[in-house]
Write a protein that binds this DNA or RNA. Structure first.
Lengths: 92, 92
DNA sequence: TTAACATTTAGCTAAATCTCTAAATAAAGA
DNA sequence: TCTTTATTTAGAGATTTAGCTAAATGTTAA
């Protein structure tokens, strides 16, 4: 997955809010959807975009699908930003 | 300017490349455009999006307009990412 | 002032995006 | 098995976006 997909995934406010929700807890698709005034189908679409960008992982448990934050991709964009800022830590 | 505008601005590969070009030097719109196989009008549009997002500044000098990187907005998204990563430095 | 150069703005098209409703898939419980 | 619950997939409509060409703006130089 390229940078573009990550930034594109982060450019939507609903998706950023989903990531914040997942900051400390694992939540099912339904629990996530309950936080938004939007159909479950739309939330599902956002979740699939976040997953394709590598920003979340999913795990099926019975009839639920639980989502968790995956911060490894963020390290890449973190370094890219630090590189732009001229921070030598991000250059190598 | 909100987070969404910043991430949206960063989601385009041409715009990210422009930021990298400006990392060490100040460049005019024409000099920036010379790096891309794209019309000057399209580059101009990208520059206006980057400027609206606060990622670059411009300065008119004679008939040229010079662009420079502005990294202050990046600090905000840097902190937002650190917050997601659970880094306490980014929480305050 | 006129011509040339640098850049932006306006208007267009094609492609992408977000949201919805309806239908499909999969698991749980009666 | 049949029904309900959880979630995703498919298709449609509205909006946004990236690129183009042509026209407009502003500056320099002849």
């Amino acid at each position: 997955m390229a940078f573009g997909d990550t930034f594109k995934a982060l450019s939507d406010p609903t998706r950023r809010e989903i990531l914040v929700l997942l900051r400390h807890e694992r939540l099912s698709a339904g629990e996530i959807g309950a936080h938004f005034d939007m159909t479950g189908a739309s939330i599902s679409r956002h979740l699939s975009i976040l997953k394709a960008a590598g920003l979340i992982d999913d795990e099926k448990v019975g009839k639920y699908i639980y989502y968790t934050l995956n911060t490894t991709v963020m390290d890449d964009i973190l370094n890219w930003i630090l590189l732009l800022k001229g921070d030598t830590e991000g250059e190598k």
